[in-house]
Design a protein around this nucleic acid. Structure first.
Lengths: 349, 349
DNA sequence: TTGTAGGCGTTATCAT
DNA sequence: ATGATAACGCCTACAA
């Protein structure tokens, strides 16, 4: 790319216009792919653009269009790995463009959350917004985005909006598959450590568990269903409770890896070996899952792919390398990952 | 804050000027805290600003000032938790301002890295840049930032630049303290799994290890020093090697938690119990550290605080709530965290 | 199909 | 200390 050297002045649309012998507006038309230009002039203008290494100034465009050329990511810190992988996916998709990604954590427990978001949107006027769970489940945010006329996509464990505004995984199916694996190994007394009430992901994963049990004709013992908070300690506490009874479960599905790690600690403390005495499955495929001993069987959430798809969805027209993805695609598959934390129950070993 | 309702038109500097009976420029002066205004006019203007709920339009400012009101974070994905915690610290500090944080991962192995950064800076003209390790150690990036006249701060395990452009921790001291803890417990045969050559953090941590040994008058057996890559598996391999000998170490300091997790697996595979037969210390205080069994003693890297301080450093004048931090402060302390992975060596138990 | 004039909302220059 | 006028670099309306 030709670059100006010493002067350090970047060429403007005026320079291009002058050298191409056309008006600013014509250059503008070329830049914005307006159909109202002759092939000839377009070619001439593009040649000059290339020679100059001209790149439109985003600030000026922002002012004129009243729209900033970036995508915001709103989230209320689910786990770090999730946020970062998602960011990575988004950035991966937009890196060849001139878009930027700005991060905006919010506090879903603050009464000011909506006002904060509104203020941010008014101030910064982003091109588009991406919303990660759990706040993606908040319909008020989507309404706000629509009202402010900001393109958006909601990410979730299940479809949260119409297709053009959704990117989601099939947690339910994935959990069903994972639990079916447990059942196939011979387990019947399977416990569930579920996520906190009110989280869509928690509900979906619970459903998947129940469907797997039902499909196998196994009853769900309700005292084998314990609620956690998605934090390590809640998994520990839940497992203590589950393992304390006379007929403890031979397998546990924990709705995320962190709780599974907690459950693992609880088992170890009671001298219960995993997987010999207790099989364990988590969800997320966090780094922790593979760092544990035994390495944890889990479900990989396609979060990076979701980031890529979300970026594609909301910013397609600003991304150079076309429409390889069908816009109606919105669902990506979670995938069961088998590691060493599953074994047949004792009596079958 | 007074908000216009139906019209949805946000007030501009012109509205303020008209209602306050002054010129745009005067309003601008008030906004920018220019000393060239009477107390009286300033008060009058500020009153109108409040009543209108006027907020300057960042896009227009950006165009006029040729500078975008955001901070970029450049990084080449160290671990997710680090990046995210740093982001959190930065955002925490700037959240009451009108600044935004944009994330820009780069690939330090790409020959285009510098060009990419340069292009980004030219295009986006950020107010300031923050650079996370390991790329913060690359002097060429700092040069670029200076050349492009972008305020910046480099984050590291030791001072990487002059004080105004540095935020760093004292890895060496912290590791020294951690290893001294091992020595105090009675260990003499202590091994080091160090980080990859060329990383400043690796060098600092190694130094800390050596200083602790020297201070205790203990020799460093060079076959007890093995290099890893900061990844789990390299810790596993290193520990296999360390534990295979006739006189294996009774304690290992791994230069990060991930490698410590790998070492833990290796030990477990050989039937070596942690901490009874082998004490283990990591570095980072990652979530993994507390999820392992036994919970890993480690060093907490004050990464969030570093984010806060870095934001303060580069954007002080744009942040509303003043100068509570001394700008010359650049160092933050890492802290040893004692958990269950340390015990006296066998013969002292 | 192309160009002219004017606007987006702010800051800078240079008088007064 | 304040204000008129001109940038900043792009885009939209409207005219040609």
């Amino acid at each position: 790319m030709a670059q100006n050297t010493a002067s350090d002045k970047k060429p403007t649309i005026n320079d291009v216009a002058r050298l191409a012998n056309v008006s600013k507006k014509t250059v503008s038309r070329v830049l914005n792919k307006s159909p109202l230009t002759t092939e000839v002039t377009r070619a001439r203008v593009e040649k000059v653009i290339d020679e100059l290494g001209f790149v439109p100034n985003p600030q000026a465009r922002a002012l004129a269009l009243r729209r900033n050329f970036f995508i915001v990511l709103f989230h209320d810190n689910p786990n770090a790995q999730t946020v970062l992988n998602f960011q990575k996916g988004v950035l991966d998709r937009i890196k060849t463009s001139d878009l930027a990604l700005v991060v905006r954590p919010v506090d879903r427990h603050s009464p000011d959350m909506l006002d904060d978001i509104a203020h941010f949107l008014d101030q910064q006027r982003p091109l588009a917004a991406l919303v990660l769970p759990p706040i993606s489940e908040d319909d008020r945010i989507a309404e706000l985005l629509r009202a402010k006329n900001v393109e958006y996509a909601r990410i979730g464990s299940a479809q949260l909006d119409d297709l053009p505004h959704s990117v989601f995984s099939n947690d339910r199916e994935a959990v069903k598959a994972a639990c079916s694996e447990l059942i196939r190994a011979g387990h019947k007394a399977i416990a569930l450590i579920k996520g906190p009430a009110g989280f869509r992901s928690a509900a979906e994963r619970e459903q998947g568990f129940r469907e797997a049990m039902a499909a196998a004709g196994l009853p769900v013992e309700e005292h084998f269903v314990v609620e956690g908070t998605y934090r390590l300690n809640s998994g520990y506490v839940a497992a203590q409770k589950l393992l304390a009874g006379d007929n403890p479960p031979t397998a546990i599905f924990a709705s995320n890896d962190e709780m599974a790690a907690g459950a693992l600690h609880a088992a170890r403390e009671r001298g219960i070996n995993v997987p010999e005495d207790l099989s364990l499955v988590g969800f997320d495929d966090s780094p922790t899952a593979s760092h544990l001993w035994p390495p944890l069987s889990t479900v990989r959430w396609p979060i990076m792919e979701m980031g890529r798809m979300a970026a594609q969805k909301v910013a397609q027209r600003y991304l150079p390398d076309g429409t390889d993805t069908d816009l109606d695609d919105a669902q990506l598959s979670s995938e069961f990952i088998s590691r060493k934390s599953i074994a047949p129950p004792r009596h079958l070993q």
